[in-house]
């Protein structure tokens, strides 16, 4: 379960190569949710979001988060207008989320903000970026300033990725 974030603590959210305020609140899977009384800047668990998909699919202020065992497949036809889709890494060594990210970007043409949440750390930043993530909620106890540097560990790539800022061609095509 990702840590709930709130705006009182200093932000650990990285986007566009900088640390920014994080108004987004992650709603736990077992939390009560009522669409009538819901506030803004919420990230709902996939099951909850799907229950209200018709009302939410064009919402500018409510997003969704996927756990590591939840494929983005149910979002295929619905995701285009979702402002934020977050993918949870319960432990950083669980790499399923990388494939989910690429599926959203490359197959479903999702162009909104794709966010890595959970056990998100410095040493995986470059891989997140290359798989199409565009924002990163660094684990609470980790240093977001230092993690920023991880986005630029490499300056060339052998294979094509889903990097949004810098769509690349594989090296073999450039040579």
């Amino acid at each position: 379960m990702p840590n709930s974030s709130n705006s009182i603590k200093p932000s650990n959210l990285i986007k566009d190569q900088q640390i920014i305020d994080n108004p987004w609140q992650i709603i736990a899977k077992d939390a009560e949710f009522s669409i009538e009384t819901a506030g803004d800047h919420l990230l709902l668990p996939l099951a909850t979001w799907l229950q209200h998909a018709e009302q939410l699919k064009n919402s500018k202020t409510i997003g969704v988060w996927l756990d590591s065992d939840e494929s983005p497949e149910p979002l295929q036809a619905l995701c285009q207008s979702i402002p934020v889709i977050a993918i949870n890494f319960p432990v950083f060594a669980d790499g399923r989320g990388y494939s989910y990210a690429r599926t959203l970007r490359d197959y479903y043409a999702y162009t909104g903000d794709l966010r890595a949440i959970g056990d998100v750390l410095h040493d995986q930043m470059y891989f997140y970026k290359r798989c199409g993530f565009s924002s990163y909620l660094i684990r609470e106890d980790a240093n977001a300033e230092k993690a920023l540097a991880g986005l630029n560990d490499f300056s060339a790539n052998y294979q094509v990725g889903s990097d949004q800022a810098n769509p690349d061609t594989p090296i073999f095509q450039k040579r």
Binding site: A93, Y98, R102, F127, K129, R130, Y158
Partner: peptide, 8 residues
Amino acid sequence: TFHPEFAL
């Protein structure tokens, strides 16, 4: 080599 999706 450093395939971003298949490191973990």
